[in-house]
Design a protein around this nucleic acid. Structure first.
Lengths: 215, 215
DNA sequence: TCGAGCCTATCGATCGATCGATCGGCTCGT
DNA sequence: ACGAGCCGATCGATCGATCGATAGGCTCGA
């Protein structure tokens, strides 16, 4: 049974990768077991149901993302810098943890009801940080944008796409990637100010910390 | 067996909706049959395999999108206006045909090899029109952007997200939606010129025509 | 005009395979 | 001796797909 501290690492690692690239319904229990070097029966020593495993993955990833966003929001008063950091956070998270983020972004529909609401609530709380940064920027006359809801969704989707194509082994460094997305977002908001490299590096460090990665 | 003109409309309509909201692997043959008011056996009178049905849906949607993009590219020399029209085309298509576009965007991985390459080729040809508009604009000094590949992917993903949330019954009209996205995209490209409403309306008409919708 | 032949559309029944999940039991380290 | 870790065997359910059959309509030649 899954402990409170989370599922056994092997199992979770195998699951997140398979769910990300074949989808939840496209991944079989036996396939999952093989990827974790276990029999399908042993799998159930570590997890509840297949769906519990999915819910755990999503809850964990969203909690980390939400914590990071809260930290940025609490420490960055200027809406321009705050939004730039949120963009960098979102982009770096999607670039460094493409499997987890793709599962979060694509598999909400595979969750049934008790867990689904919880995950949606977490996602909404995270998006609310973006909404606040955008409305603060508009109230301060720093952002020129139409409907703030449309803008928020457009920017979020733009950044999420990173998980589908970015490779850390390619020519583009993570810092460059984050800087480009921050620049795109700020320009889209009608804001000519450039995001400082230091601000974006902060986001990168937070991502590394909340995921326990070498920075 | 599927005729050259495409699968029976009832079947295709049921399939595209189910595939869009439960995923290809999350949709069963019996569920599909029920949605089309047929027995699961009768379904096979109209289609080949379940995967053939998916491939047909994707091929059809991508062909329509590619034709429309070609028409715009062939008739719009100025890269700013061309990109604005491509954005409007993409956004209107995703807003008016959310089921088809979500299937195209999310289910490529469910296709196996002969069909998958064909679909990827169509998608690449479509994206090439965006790449040309962006590189033309940069060459003409109209667009200020970093890596053109990053910019292209960012803008495409931004626009594709529309299929996940837009409702034609909401407060936001399709014209406003297209105009907002075009403005976001042009600003992101460092281009202050406003897209003309007439240009965007052209894109809306093309969408209605290629999909046989009332305009 | 009739009926043989054929085609389309439909279905109930069922195929073998695989699905997610459980069972009882084995083997260790403690 | 006991529980954590693990597995072969197997459960009932469902999967995608196929079977043979039926009913109705169209087109012929006689």
């Amino acid at each position: 049974m899954a402990l409170t501290g989370g599922t056994e690492p092997r199992v979770r690692r195998a699951a997140v990768n398979l769910f990300a690239d074949k989808g939840f319904h496209g991944t079989g229990i036996r396939e999952l077991a093989q990827a974790a070097n276990l029999s399908s029966a042993s799998l159930y020593h570590y997890m509840g149901t297949k769906e519990d495993l999915l819910a755990g993955i999503m809850r964990d990833a969203l909690t980390r993302l939400l914590d990071a966003a809260g930290e940025i929001a609490g420490s960055t008063a200027d809406p321009r810098a705050r939004l730039a950091k949120l963009v960098a956070l979102h982009v770096c998270t999607h670039a460094l943890r493409p499997a987890e983020t793709q599962v979060v972004d694509n598999e909400v529909r595979s969750l049934s009801e008790p867990a689904r609401h919880e995950v949606v609530r977490l996602r909404d709380a995270y998006e609310e940080q973006w909404a606040l940064a955008i409305s603060d920027g508009m109230a301060a006359g720093r952002f020129v944008a139409g409907d703030p809801g449309v803008t928020r969704r457009a920017l979020l989707e733009m950044c999420s796409g990173v998980a589908r194509w970015y490779s850390p082994h390619g020519a583009l460094s993570l810092d460059d990637l984050a800087a480009q997305y921050a620049a795109l977002a700020l320009r889209a908001l009608g804001c000519v100010d450039r995001a400082s490299g230091a601000d974006l590096a902060t986001a990168g460090e937070i991502v590394a910390r909340v995921w326990g990665l070498p920075s």
